[in-house]
């Protein structure tokens, strides 16, 4: 990456990327393009929420309770304010809250995937490279982890964290606890893939050669072995992102998760489902559609990536 000079290589790299098999397959798959566009729109909208959203739903001082339950595109009975997608039970603009909520959901999702990925790849590399009892132990732990219900694990982690974190910091820490809880439940898949590939690669001649020269194992692992497994890891990570976002929503239904004053998409849906029979359909419908669109398109991208990266299917 640092070997070539950027000014010369960039057009080349771009051109090369455009001509690559992956890009070709992408251009030929309308579903993948739509999915990519939809996820990109949602991700960008979430990232730039503070500039796009007409209101700041996370600032309680700007909320007027009397704005609550305003239907979409209709003036509120008390205040006369009109909101594009209506307001929720606290007078929060649903559109703005969705943008800010997607921000939280995506943040939790990305960080959880990152956490699981780093943990899984590290342990997978170690297990595959070292072998022996280290490998046996790690894979045994992975077996246990794989069969243990992930939601249950997250619930338990949340319980522990509550015990350790002093009350004053609990609200601020809730999101990080969530990330660890969800991430911890998903590292095994990365570890398995990376371990398998490492075991195959480590006996190849170029790795043996590097070892003979006296290259540090860490360097061998990172420079030579890791790039070979990035394909499958990317597939797992993409699907893992969708999984993590849904897991966050599920946990919020069980009463653990981010505080209701700073809701994620999942928390919004949990709140909204209370209004399914009462007539305020917009509080449930719009966050649900956003979550569905996001998770569905990320999943579709994962599906497409899996096929595209599988050389035998081309």
């Amino acid at each position: 990456m640092t070997e070539f000079t950027p000014d010369e290589s960039r057009p080349n790299a771009l051109a090369r990327a455009w001509d690559s098999d992956i890009a070709y397959s992408f251009r030929r798959s309308p579903l993948a393009i739509i999915a990519a566009v939809v996820s990109l729109i949602i991700i960008l909208a979430a990232v730039f929420a503070p500039w796009i959203a007409p209101h700041d739903p996370f600032n309680p001082a700007t909320l007027n309770l009397m704005d609550g339950f305003t239907p979409p595109m209709e003036p509120n009975a008390f205040t006369g304010n009109v909101y594009w997608l209506g307001t929720d039970n606290q007078g929060r603009d649903v559109f703005s809250t969705i943008l800010f909520g997607a921000r939280i959901s995506l943040f939790v999702g990305f960080m959880a995937v990152l956490f699981a990925m780093v943990l899984g790849i590290t342990l997978g590399l170690i297990a595959g490279y070292r072998g022996g009892w280290v490998d046996s132990l790690l894979m045994r732990v992975a077996d246990v982890q794989l069969t243990f219900p992930s939601i249950l694990l997250a619930l338990l982690i949340f319980g522990v964290a509550r015990g350790f974190i002093p009350p004053a910091y609990r609200e601020a820490m809730a999101i990080w606890v969530l990330i660890v809880a969800i991430g911890l439940a998903e590292w095994v898949q990365y570890a398995r893939v990376v371990r398998g590939a490492t075991m195959v690669e480590k006996n190849k001649e170029y790795v043996q050669a590097a070892r003979v020269i006296g290259a540090h194992p860490a360097k061998i692992l990172l420079r030579h072995i890791l790039p070979n497994v990035m394909g499958p890891v990317l597939v797992i990570a993409t699907i893992g992102l969708a999984l993590a976002i849904i897991a966050e929503a599920t946990l919020s239904f069980l009463g653990v998760g981010v505080p209701p004053t700073q809701p994620s998409l999942g928390t919004l849906i949990r709140i909204g489902q209370g209004f399914l029979f009462s007539g305020e359909w917009w509080i449930l419908l719009f966050p649900s559609i956003t979550l569905l669109a996001l998770a569905l398109s990320v999943n579709l991208l994962g599906d497409w990536l899996r096929d595209a990266l599988n050389p035998r299917l081309r």
């Binding site: 849904i246 929503a249 489902q273 979550l291 998770a295 569905l296």
Partner: peptide
């Protein structure tokens, strides 16, 4: 393609919401 896409809805919505929606449609 349709089967692949539609089946993804099952993993793209939280279970509790799917349950509540099924109750709404098929029970109520």
């Amino acid at each position: 393609g349709t089967i692949m896409t539609v089946s993804l809805i099952g993993v793209s919505l939280p279970t509790f919401l799917i349950g509540v929606l099924l109750i709404w449609v098929f029970a109520v």
